[in-house]
Design a protein around this nucleic acid. Sequence first.
DNA 1: CGCGGGGTTGTCGAAATCGACAATGGCCGG
DNA 2: CCGGCCATTGTCGATTTCGACAACCCCGCG
Lengths: 218, 218
Amino acid sequence: MTPHTAAPIRLLVVDDHPLFREGLARTLGTEAGFEIVGQAENGSSAESLWNQTKPDVALIDVSMPGIDGIETVRRLRARHPSARLLMLTSSEDWDDVIAALDAGASGYITKSVRYGDLVAAVREVHAGGRPIGETVARKLAARDRDSPLTPRELEVLQLLREGLSIDDMGRQLAITERTVRAHVTAIKVKLDAANTAQAVARGFERGLLAAGVPKPRS
Amino acid sequence: MTPHTAAPIRLLVVDDHPLFREGLARTLGTEAGFEIVGQAENGSSAESLWNQTKPDVALIDVSMPGIDGIETVRRLRARHPSARLLMLTSSEDWDDVIAALDAGASGYITKSVRYGDLVAAVREVHAGGRPIGETVARKLAARDRDSPLTPRELEVLQLLREGLSIDDMGRQLAITERTVRAHVTAIKVKLDAANTAQAVARGFERGLLAAGVPKPRS
DNA sequence: CGCGGGGTTGTCGAAATCGACAATGGCCGG
DNA sequence: CCGGCCATTGTCGATTTCGACAACCCCGCG
């Protein structure tokens, strides 16, 4: 069972839910070849712990209060380009998947996987691989054709979802109402929607909008 | 600490996320006075396992594919009126809180609590208490103003999602535009939305609208 | 039987959105 | 270098929706 591991994989677990984090740490800690060197409950704590412990791999939850997982990845990446970061997520949010990989995550895995899959994923990341899971990979490949909207239009759709009026969106984006209307019109055409209301609905249906809370504005 | 516990609390853990369930089970299993007698990943499995193992307390996740936690509680309650069921939830959804307690859950606790709180809650449930957590309790008291939509309003929200105009909805529902408007207004007020667009978004966020395809019309 | 809530309808003017057109400048890839 | 896509802005009137009133009917509940 335990073939005298030459050097155990040193793990840092980052998750805001104590229950999950604790359970995960304890479970992985019993796994052969794994060593939990730290637990963090938020992004800033993760940063300082990384500096202190210099783990081999960090398991980072996507959604966290304050500095979220994506931002944490970005920051760690900036200071430690060789860091191996495996994202963990509960909901399969494609925006987050893309954002995470763009930010420099080595892998992306959902919390719905079986325990052994997670262990395998950690080992793969440690070995330099980029596990992203079958379902995630499949959807990721299909994201191009599933995103008929231009970046700007997507942005407008986000604001639309938040209930802003055309005027407010104009102010928010620092453009004229006319322009916003042009975008909204384009969105409705592209999503085959009769209303802004249906446009938003289509956004959710197509995964352009996540079910969670709207992203914080920069 | 004392290994010779007179009678350990026999626990059944029900959660669809293997990672979380496994971690929780292992962690609680090391706790003095606790014994994990089974793990279930869905409602039906939970039922049969309950019958087999007759646990003292069941930890049941709210959101699960297929038979969800609420329904599981309802079924277990029906067959085992004395069952002690502690609900676990990741998101603080008040509708679920109410539904769970109505269904017969003994307690309700969020996954964001610290580990010790969960242990305490399990013990409290086992002792016949009804822990519901401070935040949950506070919001529960205020559930009146969080009132969900009336059936009719929900129906209107569905149509709104499909992109129908006020007029079309009127025809569809065989009522006047004025009435539809009244419903729409009520929806926006209740969902705290500024637009129909945001109302739809809120519908998705609150789970009033499913991400799938709209239901076929009769 | 009265009370209250849900569902229904009405009116009004004010506000927002739509729709269809045309035009400019920037940037990327052929 | 040119064509095309994207973002931007403009104008026009027509249409839709909003918001805040008030009112009625029906039903279940105490």
